[in-house]
Simulated assay, not measured.
Amino acid sequence: MTLLKTLAAAGIVALAVAGCGSSTSPTSSSSSASASAQSSTAKTPPERVYIDVTIADGVAKPINQQVQAKLSEPIIVRITSDAADQLHVHSNPEHTFDIKAAPDQQFQFTVDVPGKVDVELHHLDKTIATITVQ
């Protein structure tokens, strides 16, 4: 009886191995497909571009900063200001944000058309950054 159980177990293992070995695709491609399925389901936050701006006593910093970004990548302008102004992003479509006299303000946008995009302060009439979007 024990020999019969051992033979039955060996037969089940042989069938399982034969079933796995009958795949027409190579093992490496199925494991890479599994790895890519895992990576596509993993939620990694998108990269972001930050531009830090300070407005104090009528002076904005930075002026004419050069920035690189990818298409549809979130761009966040962080502003601390002692005066109200308006942030204008010359992209397609354009974006306009009202700046308050307050610390730690954030304005987020994306650019979906490649090229150069100017980010301006309207009341101070200054370009704080030019973003090259690729």
Rank of each mutant, 00 (worst) to 15 (best):
D82Q: 01
D118R: 12
K126E: 12
F107L: 10
I79E: 00
K70T: 04
R78E: 01
I99L: 01
T127H: 04
D57C: 03
P45M: 12
V77W: 00
T110N: 09
E47R: 13
S72Q: 06
Q108Y: 06
K116T: 12
D52W: 01
T96K: 13
Y50V: 08
V49C: 09
V77H: 00
P45D: 13
I76E: 05
I76S: 05
I51F: 02
K61W: 09
K61V: 12
A83N: 06
H123T: 15
P93R: 10
T110L: 07
P45I: 08
H123F: 13
V89F: 02
T127W: 03
Q106K: 06
I131F: 08
L71G: 12
E120A: 13
H90I: 09
Q105A: 05
L71M: 13
L87E: 02
L124E: 11
F107D: 08
F109C: 13
N92Q: 14
H122C: 08
K70R: 11
A129H: 00
K126F: 01
I51V: 12
Q66T: 15
I63N: 12
P62I: 03
V117M: 09
V53E: 00
D104C: 03
T127P: 03
V77A: 02
L124Q: 09
L87Q: 10
F109I: 12
D85G: 01
R78K: 12
Q105Y: 07
D104T: 05
I79F: 01
K61I: 11
I51Q: 04
F107H: 13
I55A: 02
P114Y: 05
V89A: 04
E73R: 05
G58P: 08
N64M: 08
P114E: 12
H122I: 14
H90L: 14
I76Y: 00
D52M: 00
P103S: 14
L124R: 05
F109P: 15
P62D: 03
Y50L: 08
R48W: 04
G115F: 04
E47F: 10
L121T: 04
S72I: 10
T96F: 02
F97T: 04
K116I: 05
Q86A: 10
D82P: 01
L121K: 05
K70A: 12
P62H: 03
T110A: 06
T96D: 15
G115V: 14
H123L: 14
